[in-house]
Structures are given as structure tokens and as C-alpha cells.
Simulated scan of single mutants.
Amino acid sequence: MKLRDFMLGVATGLAAAIVIKEASEKISPYVPANQVLNNVKAEFKKETPIDGSWIYMKTEDFDNGVMSIPVYRGGISRMVDGEIEYFEFAADARSGVIVDLVKS
């Protein structure tokens, strides 16, 4: 096998990988909702055990005053000093980062 043939194969494979990655991001540019919920739960578990959690699987628009971004809405409940605390959150659907957290 000549080096030229090998390099042509590597370049073709790399180009195909880039095209497939771009196409998959256009089809589903969002982080899966379950992954977002698991990340939020992991952060809460660092402080206290979690009692319950939920997340809406469909995105909705969140306006922060500057721009509107797609978010997942969800909630966490936990027991602290014998009382249940409830938190609701909004997480960026593209990155999974929490953009709003409210204790209710």
C-alpha cells in the first residue's frame, strides 16, 4: 500500500466523520433531557440526598431579557432538617447548563 493511498483513505474517513457530525447536530441539536436531569441530580446529591425529581422532555423558550433560548423545565425535591425543599429549574437544552433555579 502506498502512502498516498493511505492518506487518501484517512482524509476520506475524516471528511465523512465531519459530515455525519454536522448532520446529526442539525437533526437533534439538543442534549437529551434525561442527561440534563441526571447532571442536575448529581449536583444536588453532593449536598443532600434527593427525594424526587422530574423534567419535561419537550423544550420551551426562556427569555432572560436579552435573548430567548430553548430550555428544559424540571424540578428536584429533597429532605433538609425534616422538611421537604422544592426547587424548579430551567436548563439550556443545547448545553445542559442551568439558567434559572428557584426554591419554591
Results as ranks from 00 to 15, higher is better:
M67P: 01
G65C: 12
T48E: 07
A11S: 12
L3T: 14
A15N: 05
V80T: 10
E22L: 05
G52W: 08
S28W: 00
P49T: 06
A23R: 08
K41I: 14
E85W: 08
A42C: 04
S28H: 06
R78F: 05
I50K: 02
G82M: 07
F6W: 12
E22Q: 09
D100I: 01
G65F: 13
V80L: 08
S77K: 07
N34M: 05
E60G: 04
G65K: 10
I50F: 00
Y72R: 01
Q35D: 15
K46N: 09
L14T: 13
T48F: 13
V40G: 11
P70A: 03
I69T: 05
D100Y: 14
P32E: 11
V36T: 12
R73E: 14
G82E: 05
F62W: 12
V99I: 08
F6K: 10
N34Y: 03
E88M: 07
V99N: 13
I27S: 07
N64A: 03
T12V: 09
I20F: 06
E43S: 14
E25S: 05
P29M: 01
M1W: 03
L8I: 08
E83M: 13
R4C: 05
A17W: 01
I50S: 02
D51V: 03
E85D: 12
K46D: 12
S77W: 05
V40K: 07
V71D: 02
G13V: 06
D81Q: 13
A17P: 00
R78G: 04
M1T: 10
D92Y: 13
V10I: 15
E22N: 02
A33T: 03
K45P: 00
E85V: 08
I98W: 11
A23G: 02
G9M: 08
A16S: 07
D81Y: 09
S53N: 10
T59W: 00
F6I: 15
F6L: 14
M1A: 09
A23N: 06
M7W: 12
A42Q: 15
E85L: 14
P49S: 11
D51R: 02
D51Q: 07
D81M: 06
V80Y: 07
A90T: 03
I18V: 13
M1K: 06
Q35V: 13
F87Y: 15
K26S: 05
E43W: 00
I98R: 13
E85G: 00
E25T: 03
A23I: 06
D63V: 03
D81F: 06
W54R: 09
N34K: 11
E83S: 14
S68P: 00
E47W: 05
V102D: 04
A91V: 06
A23L: 10
G52T: 06
A33I: 01
Y30R: 01
E85Y: 10
A90K: 07
W54M: 08
N39D: 15
V97G: 03
I84G: 02
Y86R: 09
V31D: 05
T12D: 01
F44E: 09
A33Q: 04
E25M: 04
V19L: 03
P29N: 04
G74W: 08
I84H: 04
G13M: 11
M1I: 09
E43G: 11
A91S: 13
A16F: 09
F89E: 08
G74I: 08
E88C: 01
E60K: 14
V71G: 00
T12K: 03
S104E: 13
D100E: 14
